[in-house]
């Protein structure tokens, strides 16, 4: 069982190496499309640094694959409030991401007060709080307070959305 788990972990890291390689390739391809007007004042041109960076990323990706295949593992970052003894808890992370994406989708239409409150409420729920009434009150209060705080304090008009005219 442990071997399957560790093999899966290894594959996940290979996926990250692939991502690195893809970013590197994107940088290289993008750079190769740049036109280099000959210029006395800019002998380096716009391509050089992207080539170096893309090359660095691709080399890192390849070395990472080699490292992972030889059994190297990245050391997950610990922290004050991080417990690495249990595996990634996707049942917390996925709802969190869902709340985040929902906010991106509706913020311009529904406005910050609604989307922000949903974001906070969704996050709190995802993180395991089940005190529904208190959570709703805090969410709404927080998004209202930031809306007016930004408007009155900083002069930034966050979108009011559906509540335009009400707020």
């Amino acid at each position: 069982m442990t071997t399957i788990a560790s093999r899966l972990k290894g594959r996940a890291e290979l996926g990250f190496a692939a991502l690195l390689g893809a970013v590197g390739a994107a940088v290289l391809i993008d750079a190769s499309r740049l036109a280099v007007p000959y210029s006395q004042s800019d002998p380096v041109g716009p391509k050089t640094v992207p080539f170096i960076v893309g090359g660095l990323l691709v080399v890192c990706a390849v070395l990472l694959v080699v490292d992972v295949l030889r059994g190297g593992r990245g050391e997950a970052e610990g922290g004050e409030d991080v417990d690495l003894t249990h595996p990634t808890d996707w049942r917390t992370v996925l709802p969190l991401l869902a709340a985040f994406v929902l906010n991106i989708l509706i913020i311009d239409i529904a406005g910050w007060v609604i989307s922000g409150a949903l974001l906070f409420y969704g996050s709190v729920w995802a993180l395991g709080s089940r005190r529904y009434v208190r959570d709703v009150i805090i969410s709404v209060a927080l998004s209202l307070a930031t809306f007016y705080g930004f408007y009155l304090g900083l002069g930034i008009r966050l979108p009011a959305g559906f509540l335009t005219g009400v707020l």
């Binding site: 922290g79 409030d81 991080v82 808890d89 996707w90 917390t92 992370v93 969190l96």
Partner: peptide, 10 residues
């Protein structure tokens, strides 16, 4: 925040 959420101490 995501990282901590994935490994919350209990």
């Amino acid at each position: 925040a995501l990282w901590i959420a994935a490994h919350l101490r209990r």
